[in-house]
Computed example of a mutant assay.
Amino acid sequence: MNRTETTRATVATYFDAWRGRDFERLRTVLAPGVEFAGVMGTASGVEECVAGLRGMATSIMTDLVLHARVVEGVDAMTWFDLITDHTPPIPTVNWSRVEDGLITRIRVTFDPRPLTAT
């Protein structure tokens, strides 16, 4: 598998596991020193990252609707809607970097105003 294929497969596993709330599987694609930065906060390392994703999944997220993924080498951009019980779908982009088959960096951006208005 080349780098782009590895990146695509790793990021697909990340989203499948997060959407399915399979946090043990999610943990298998995160590098020990993974860094996460997003609108709702930051996390350093696997434990903090999984805790943050678990928190999103259990507090506001009811589903994710994936629309597009662009992968080039070690970078993947995934465009999706974050689905909640109390807001319209929230358009979101996730930029992940994959090195040696593990996600080392995640950047997420979306407009948080619908979440703060409820």
Score class of each variant (00 low, 15 high):
Y14A: 09
Y14K: 05
F15K: 13
A17D: 05
A17Y: 03
R19V: 10
R19Y: 10
R21K: 08
R21H: 11
R21Q: 10
R25G: 08
R25T: 15
L26C: 11
L26E: 03
L26R: 00
R27P: 01
R27C: 05
T28C: 02
V29S: 01
L30H: 02
L30K: 02
A31R: 07
A31N: 10
A31M: 08
P32E: 12
V34R: 07
F36D: 12
A37H: 07
G38A: 09
G38N: 15
G38I: 03
G41Y: 03
S44K: 02
G45N: 06
G45V: 06
G45K: 03
V46Q: 05
V46P: 01
V46N: 03
E47Q: 06
E48C: 08
C49P: 11
G52L: 06
G52D: 13
R54Y: 04
R54E: 14
G55V: 02
M56T: 08
M56N: 10
A57G: 03
A57D: 09
A57Q: 09
T58Y: 06
S59M: 10
I60G: 11
M61Y: 02
T62V: 08
D63Y: 01
L64A: 12
L66D: 01
L66P: 00
L66H: 06
L66R: 15
H67P: 05
H67F: 06
H67R: 02
A68P: 00
R69M: 11
V70C: 09
V70D: 13
V71E: 00
E72N: 13
E72V: 14
G73W: 00
G73K: 00
